[in-house]
Design a protein around this nucleic acid. Sequence first.
DNA 1: TAATAAATGAAATTTTTATTTCATTTATTA
DNA 2: TAATAAATGAAATAAAAATTTCATTTATTA
Lengths: 279, 279
Amino acid sequence: MPVATTLTELQDQIRARYGDLSKRLQQVACYVLDNNNSLAFDTIKVIASQADVPPSTLIRFAKAFEFTGFNEMKQLFRKNLVEETVSYTDRARLFQDLESNQKIREKPSHILQEFARVNSQAMNQLAAQTPENKLEAAIDILSKAENIYLIGLRRSFSIASYLTYALRHLERRAFLIDGLGGMFKEQLSMVGPNDAVLSISFSPYAEETVTLSEAASQAGAKQIVITDSQISPLATFSDVCFVVNEGKVDAFRSQSASLCLVQSLAVALAFKQGKAQEI
Amino acid sequence: MPVATTLTELQDQIRARYGDLSKRLQQVACYVLDNNNSLAFDTIKVIASQADVPPSTLIRFAKAFEFTGFNEMKQLFRKNLVEETVSYTDRARLFQDLESNQKIREKPSHILQEFARVNSQAMNQLAAQTPENKLEAAIDILSKAENIYLIGLRRSFSIASYLTYALRHLERRAFLIDGLGGMFKEQLSMVGPNDAVLSISFSPYAEETVTLSEAASQAGAKQIVITDSQISPLATFSDVCFVVNEGKVDAFRSQSASLCLVQSLAVALAFKQGKAQEI
DNA sequence: TAATAAATGAAATTTTTATTTCATTTATTA
DNA sequence: TAATAAATGAAATAAAAATTTCATTTATTA
């Protein structure tokens, strides 16, 4: 029997062989099957005392399932725990380590596959980590705003322009600050306390975005921010701040999670307005 | 200031004191705020090398926030990860049971979760169904084109604008047809046989996109098309046609798969050009 | 039941990890 | 700019972990 590479696999193996294990190993098996978090986090010593066996038995157990040591087995539990929440940055790095074959890494289909994988993970993480009340707060701001200004430059421009499109379809007064004709400031000059500004900016933070956000903040407008770090310069002015951990393939940062967030906001707003029409 | 007892508390403290920290400690602060999973799992050595500081700095950081050592701080991250996983699982189950409950279906967090799920599926399907040779062909066209014109209106504008941004960063001569000043035709008037046109359009197909594509085709330019059906009007003129099946939440069609495709094209092109710089 | 094999656990050993120390660099202040 | 303080990082040390060893117990079988 080959060594298990996922937690599910391992659990199946344990159940299959349970009857043949010695008394002590059965005791370990029970603990292992029922305490995933403990296995992921605790040291051998702690696990041993909780499962009421000596440490050496744990190592015997791991070796009985073809692992080179207890730590190797432990990795399955960690991987499993992380899968639901991992920042895809870490995963991508891991993948690089394993996948040293340059020829394969550069194949377009492989890149597409990697992006799909990485983006899935990033979006699921976003969904798991974004608290209900932040979303509610953002939607509340958007639904009450007289005018909504969208700021997103360079890399973030596409996201901002999508949201503008969606908001317009919801018949909201949405204005995309695009700096056409160099008129950044002019485009925001009418912003007031009844308005909302949604800014999107990722490192390296576009200077104009920060300046404009600050200006809007001083004008008393409500601020929603989408950014990539808790200490983004934009976070300071924000009423609601979404920190999005985007996926990466090599050095290439994705945008999917941000797009997903923005779409969700638009759809939730549509429901709130009772306008469930197509976007 | 008392020692933090939850991750949120710690994050607040870090943000509050960020400005007063030394350069190295700020560097640690950034890493700590943005890499929860790494903090929960990795050893000091690993974290230190990823944050690019010596191990001792990490311990200084922990002590600066009143912890007795780094491990004490680490516990907050572990606790948080475990709690998060639990609530995530619970939520998922809850929604399955109550799928028909309108109140829940309209909750923003549910919408976000649904989009994440649906988009993951769509992207993975895209990756699985897009043949290598189509990708190769598209990249070949892009890499040989003298000028690249991007057409995407309304819903597709954000995707087109993202690709324009990416191509510009790869130092390709990319031009976004945005119809500024009503000059659609004029923007495309210079297109010739050595150029490529990439059109993006989904049902209902924007009339201008179809017209422009046709014109470009007659001018002898290579055509890459991203659309949602084999029988899209654009498919006719195309040299390479990607059919993307986007995810939907209720009637709301997503864009993630298209974005994923477009990013993959850009990255693959970057590799081909040997310019693996950040996009 | 005696002889043998398998399982077990305490303790020693090895390995890894966290922490401290201290010489050096960098920033601040007089 | 000299003097002083703060910050830094390499390397030593301390602590803790994982693993192995081996004497002892328990089970198996001739």
